Simulated assay, not measured.
Amino acid sequence: LILGRRSAQRFDAKFTMALAAFHQLLDALLPRAAPPWEAWPFTPRLHPLLFVHRVEGLTPGLYALPRSGEAESDLRHALRAEFDWQRVARAPDRLPLFQLLPTDSRGVIRTASCHQAIAGDSCFAVAMLAEFAPLIRETPWRYRQLHWEAGLIGQVLYLEAEAAGLRGTGIGCFFDESVHEMLGVAGTDHQTLYHFTVGRPLADDRITTLPAYPGRTRNESGALP
């Protein structure tokens, strides 16, 4: 999976992702004593806000995945008061997935992601909302740490998408203030730091694809030396 991982350039705008694969992907984002989270000894500070477009059996709309026990109440206070915060009944008990607003979000997240089609054509897009200003005021170096955490979340999304036969891509260009307005975030206590999106990729024949790590061969077990 690591050797074959690629970023998608385009997505099939009609493909619907399986619900079990969606749950598996989100479950992998939760802290646990397993790679890569066992190498991350810090309290989770980034929480995915999910713009779901096409997932089997799931109403399109905005969802939240608080990654710590304290984050749910914090996000309820930080986001729009009119959000539903309805626990998703079909999600596994271990998965704290909440529906905030049933809506077609393809257009708004595409616009907020610098008008990139990948945000709206995918099965779902993610805005990673960080616990920001209080943490940074107390320990300024953690500004960098928040981006490391965003990178870890992104890499897990990449690999889980590949494992599901799909593909992901990071979105580094987005209008953060537009996203904050959409979510009802005021001030700087919370900030969106990174976006991501997952779906079924479409090949772009204009792009040359070469084997990863040329010159490296596998041994009899299939592993790279």
Score class of each variant (00 low, 15 high):
residue 203 A to F: 07
residue 138 E to V: 09
residue 140 P to H: 05
residue 150 A to N: 03
residue 153 I to H: 13
residue 136 I to W: 09
residue 182 M to E: 12
residue 175 F to V: 11
residue 206 R to P: 00
residue 203 A to N: 03
residue 137 R to I: 15
residue 171 I to A: 01
residue 182 M to H: 14
residue 162 E to D: 15
residue 173 C to H: 07
residue 142 R to D: 15
residue 159 L to R: 01
residue 201 P to W: 06
residue 163 A to N: 10
residue 145 Q to L: 14
residue 187 G to N: 15
residue 146 L to F: 08
residue 179 V to C: 02
residue 149 E to A: 01
residue 192 T to V: 14
residue 187 G to V: 13
residue 206 R to E: 15
residue 161 A to G: 14
residue 204 D to A: 09
residue 158 Y to I: 04
residue 193 L to T: 04
residue 165 G to L: 01
residue 146 L to C: 12
residue 192 T to N: 09
residue 141 W to P: 11
residue 179 V to F: 05
residue 144 R to V: 02
residue 186 A to P: 06
residue 158 Y to W: 05
residue 135 L to A: 10
residue 152 L to R: 06
residue 159 L to K: 05
residue 167 R to Y: 01
residue 191 Q to A: 11
residue 153 I to G: 03
residue 205 D to A: 06
residue 138 E to Q: 13
residue 200 R to S: 11
residue 187 G to H: 13
residue 141 W to M: 13
residue 175 F to Y: 15
residue 173 C to R: 10
residue 163 A to T: 07
residue 204 D to R: 01
residue 152 L to W: 03
residue 157 L to K: 02
residue 164 A to Y: 05
residue 142 R to F: 13
residue 196 F to G: 00
residue 189 D to A: 14
residue 134 P to G: 13
residue 148 W to T: 00
residue 168 G to E: 06
residue 181 E to G: 12
residue 140 P to K: 01
residue 168 G to S: 08
residue 181 E to H: 08
residue 192 T to F: 01
residue 149 E to Y: 02
residue 171 I to G: 00
residue 174 F to S: 10
residue 137 R to H: 10
residue 177 E to C: 00
residue 164 A to I: 00
residue 178 S to C: 08
residue 205 D to R: 01
residue 154 G to K: 04
residue 156 V to L: 02
residue 149 E to L: 01
residue 137 R to W: 05
residue 139 T to P: 14
residue 194 Y to A: 09
residue 161 A to H: 01
residue 182 M to Y: 15
residue 167 R to S: 09
residue 149 E to F: 01
residue 190 H to T: 03
residue 202 L to G: 07
residue 195 H to T: 13
residue 159 L to N: 12
